[in-house]
Design a protein around this nucleic acid. Structure first.
Lengths: 162, 162
DNA sequence: TCCTATCCCACGATATACCATAAATTCCCA
DNA sequence: TGGGAATTTATGGTATATCGTGGGATAGGA
């Protein structure tokens, strides 16, 4: 399964269409549903969209089944993720249509930043994202967040682990 | 899996193309994706690029899945590694195209130094790298750098156990 | 009917494929 | 041991294909 990598800013036209970056589409090429899933990102301030492929959602759903059925926690996630999600197929040139309410919630008007985060991605209004990433950087100043994680990955074993 | 060894300086042409050193490519030969991944090295001062193969990133991604989905910690690392990463396939002669913003961030113009670091490598503007290595040398003056005992590393591998 | 979503084209920018050359290395055989 | 010959590697230029983008046509639903 491919990973979503790098950050791309694409234009949103007057009809609400945006090109999904070609490498994002490539990461989802072998999936059955040809398109992406978007749902509101942060539950407090809906300032960005979370995105993924259909298979990821299915895995997430499977993970939620470990929580007690009808528990408040499970219900909360169900509402914020599944109920609010939009299943957006590509048109023939690889574009999707952003639902109006998602554009309004995120402030996206003429541009959208696609931010690859590995198994998922995010969609932001570019300036809002810039502020977000600046804040993130300031918070982790001095620390090197990548170092411990890389040491983890460098370990020889995890290939066949499950 | 091969290791990235030695330091090579290659030319960057007017289109931003650079040859990945042949022995680096050999280290990634058996990987599915024929190319390299680059992302900003130091998060504070982006003066060099970190490089690796796709499988390395996939293992890193798998490691991050042990963190809670959508957690802040996971998201922070994702932003610094995946969002800033570029997936660069070789052309038919083993070259990659350096993204413009990476060249600007590192000061790379006409030359790039590929520095093998074992499981990963780095890409520097040659003069900047020279300063860096000089500083490193000064800092370790008199001391003698040591590595973890080899016996420790050999232990987890049951294959050749005595 | 009107509105909106999907399809169908067409265009410009740019990345990728395809060539060709030169330097360096390895290989082979005298 | 030395001197080519054949490969590999790095590098440069040109052509082709892909991607993002825009606009118009068509179909379907309210």
């Amino acid at each position: 399964m491919g990973l979503f990598l790098s950050t791309v800013i694409n234009k949103v036209d007057s009809k609400g269409r945006v090109s999904v970056p070609a490498n994002f589409r490539a990461a989802l090429k072998q999936e059955e549903f040809q398109g992406v899933i978007l749902f509101p990102g942060n539950t407090d301030q809906h300032e960005f969209l979370e995105g993924c492929g259909m298979e990821f959602l299915e895995r997430l759903s499977a993970g939620l089944e470990t929580l007690p059925t009808f528990s408040e926690e499970q219900e909360t996630i169900n509402h914020f993720v599944f109920a609010a999600a939009a299943q957006l197929p590509y048109d023939q040139t690889g574009r999707i249509m952003l639902p109006r309410e998602m554009m309004e919630a995120t402030g996206i008007t003429t541009q959208a930043a696609f931010v690859g985060l590995g198994k998922t991605f995010q969609v932001w209004e570019p300036e809002t994202y810039q502020q977000h990433i600046t804040a993130l950087r300031a918070r982790s100043k001095g620390r090197r967040p990548t170092a411990p994680a890389l040491a983890e990955a460098a370990r020889p074993a995890p290939k066949g682990a499950s």
